[in-house]
């Protein structure tokens, strides 16, 4: 029996897959980026459905917002020209599709035939499950060290990005 949840899931799943495929096949990088934004937004809705409001909002702000804006910015910077046809690696595409199909088959076997994952999504999780308070509590107690390490990682990434793109020595361009 189809419940509201299931219907909602299927609709959103179709949207997610469609946008992902859209990203995959778009010739224009801008389109791809926009399809991906849509996909991320869809996934954010999934997160809401799964009782993770904090993650969902993080997804929207960080991924769909910051990261994808960065992408678009770079695309704009570098130009959206289609790449010229090239004759190398012609066998790559059929091979990739074949392998993807095999992987898909394995996934189907694993998920639906071996039923390695089971259980139903709890429709009504606890009131504060996934709330910012719960997440923060865990983050600053149990996962304090990884949190700090992540902050260092971000700092390093920032420095790295500046070093890679800037011309510190006043060289060309």
């Amino acid at each position: 029996m189809m419940t509201i949840d299931l219907i909602l899931f299927l609709i959103l799943a179709v949207v997610a897959i469609a946008t992902a495929l859209g990203m995959l096949v778009s010739r224009n990088a801008v389109y791809s980026a926009l399809f991906l934004v849509l996909n991320f937004a869809t996934v954010a809705v999934f997160y809401l459905l799964l009782g993770a409001p904090f993650i969902a909002l993080t997804q929207v702000t960080v991924y769909a917002g910051a990261i994808m804006v960065l992408f678009l910015f770079v695309i704009m910077l570098l130009g959206t020209d289609e790449l010229p046809e090239r004759k190398v690696l012609n066998w790559q595409k059929p091979m990739a599709i074949f392998l993807a199909l095999v992987l898909m088959a394995e996934g189907v076997y694993l998920i639906f035939i071996q039923k390695s994952a089971s259980g139903l999504i709890n429709n009504a999780p606890g009131a504060d499950f996934g709330s910012p308070q719960a997440i923060g509590d865990m983050l600053f107690n149990k996962y304090l060290l990884p949190f700090e390490v992540t902050s260092i990682l971000l700092l390093v990434a920032m420095v790295g990005a500046i070093v890679l793109t800037g011309n510190m020595k006043g060289g060309q361009s």
């Binding site: 419940t3 949840d5 299931l6 899931f9 799943a13 997610a16 897959i17 992902a20 495929l21 990203m23 995959l24 996909n39 999934f46 799964l50 990739a96 599709i97 993807a100 992987l103 898909m104 996934g107 189907v108 998920i111 639906f112 039923k115 994952a117 089971s118 259980g119 139903l120 999504i121 429709n123």
Partner: peptide, 22 residues
């Protein structure tokens, strides 16, 4: 009530699409 299997399957499909893209 959606079985978790569906989510996993969706995740797998998205993953494979991503891999294809790469």
């Amino acid at each position: 009530m959606v079985p978790v299997t569906y989510y996993v399957a969706l995740s797998a499909v998205l993953f494979i699409i991503g891999a294809m893209g790469v």
